[in-house]
């Protein structure tokens, strides 16, 4: 792998964007394999600590997506999510996190195309930034490296070696 392949923690709400991801699958819309999806009931469930924790653990990017404002399965959950995330994103960027590491989107379960498009955009924008630099806890990365070096044929070996260097 010559190019840097980012790993992106992706948190999707069950009712809309997770459905969109399913639909993208059914429709065979291709997108890069860099995202790791965590399913939650509602984007309103996502708390700031998850975003910070993802950075602690060395995630290169974070993408959170829910229902369109107004479409929330739980009536108002995504409004809270939107408000919370806009502040959090601005505040993180104010702290030095690069623009383009944190992504929020609103994708309905009928928007398989949009899901694939946004997934591509997210991966590309994180790829451009290179590996994560800030808010990483050293101990995690070190233990990654150990594990990684002990495992043969680990495709992520190169990346981690790069990161360690």
């Amino acid at each position: 792998m010559s190019e840097f392949e980012p790993k992106i923690i992706t948190i999707l709400c069950n009712w809309c964007t997770y459905g969109a991801a399913d639909l993208a699958g059914v429709s065979r819309f291709q997108y890069p394999p860099n995202i790791r999806v965590i399913r939650v009931p509602c984007s309103g469930r996502v708390s700031p600590k998850m975003i910070l924790s993802a950075f602690h653990n060395g995630a290169d990017g974070i993408w959170i997506s829910g229902c369109h404002p107004g479409d929330c399965h739980y009536i108002t959950g995504n409004y809270y999510a939107r408000r919370k995330f806009m502040l959090l994103k601005n505040f993180l960027e104010y702290n030095g996190i690069e623009q383009g590491r944190i992504h929020f989107s609103w994708i309905s379960s009928a928007e398989g195309v949009k899901f694939a498009e946004v997934a591509r955009d997210v991966v590309e924008s994180v790829r451009k930034l290179g590996p994560a630099k800030y808010f990483i806890k050293k101990e995690f990365i070190d233990s990654n490296l150990c594990n990684c070096l002990n495992t043969d044929n680990n495709p992520d070996k190169n990346i981690l070696e790069e990161q360690a260097a």
């Binding site: 939650v40 469930r45 993802a54 995630a59 919370k84 995690f140």
Partner: peptide, 27 residues
């Protein structure tokens, strides 16, 4: 997610469970 003191948990999607996923995604 709105509870500042972490007094609330959502069974089946609790902080511990989700943070474990985040941690293991990268480690």
């Amino acid at each position: 997610s709105s509870c500042r003191s972490g007094a609330l948990k959502l069974k089946g999607f609790d902080d511990g469970q989700l943070l474990a996923m985040i941690e293991s995604a990268m480690n």
